[in-house]
Design a protein around this nucleic acid. Sequence first.
DNA 1: AATAAAATATGATAAAAATCATATTTAAGA
DNA 2: TCTTAAATATGATTTTTATCATATTTTATT
Lengths: 143, 143
Amino acid sequence: MFSNSTKYAIKATLYLAVNSSENEKVVISDIAKPINVPKAYIAKILQALSKKNLISSTKGPKGGFYISEENKQVKIAEIVNAIDGETRINSCLLSLKECDSGNPCSLHHLVYKEKQLIIERLGSTSLEELAKHIKSGKSVLPL
Amino acid sequence: MFSNSTKYAIKATLYLAVNSSENEKVVISDIAKPINVPKAYIAKILQALSKKNLISSTKGPKGGFYISEENKQVKIAEIVNAIDGETRINSCLLSLKECDSGNPCSLHHLVYKEKQLIIERLGSTSLEELAKHIKSGKSVLPL
DNA sequence: AATAAAATATGATAAAAATCATATTTAAGA
DNA sequence: TCTTAAATATGATTTTTATCATATTTTATT
């Protein structure tokens, strides 16, 4: 469903949502270790997210990555789309160019409702919500 | 969700479910063309499926691939597992080793019910059912 | 028996994704 | 202003997945 890179992006972003703020920036090495992703790799991903203003960063000493007040409203789907693009998650199970109720692939009726629901949820769930969820112990920050 | 190979496997198998039988065998070239997959590639996939008795084949002149009476009861999940293995589809969105209600990843609550439902359906839907669905015009054989 | 038409087995190549490495830029602090 | 700690930009390498090619085996037909 997601590429590896997107999984890492979500992990890192959630880590920041829980552990950073404008005056508690986090350095790459300190993100890479707890989420168990190679430093150079996660660096590249975070840079891409930062460029798209989904997360924030400042250079130089005392710099690092963080989730700003604005970033808190970023939705999981935005992270996904920033890394994987929009087609991957929306493409049909069998990769028909056009698969919809008018021209459904043979698996369409088995999955489309549920899949649509999942996509909508990813589109409406913010980093802030998930951070609260994690902080309250209802789910765990993933390794 | 599925690898390319698995998508092709499903397409080819459904093609056979609709267009073959013990005495209407289909040759590789005649499968590759309509489902739009390179001949040598689909050959390899069909051979793997045949080895696991999910589809049937005979060598030599008048030979080819086909869906036997037994094969009609094969479930989509069996095709998927034969090519992708079982872990891919069952692994959690963020690839935690253990992600369940006791130790849920941060996205677990957003997807697990629907995902489980989809997996169950893939496990209970047979080639025969889908072939009927296609023949009755309710869905299309995918390109 | 010989021929030819098919799958099968095996491995080679190409493309994409994942991973790693490093030189450059920026900004804080001495 | 110099040094240093950080992100940024760029590109190289490795691994995985997808794709292609071909020699071998089997079996129906002549």
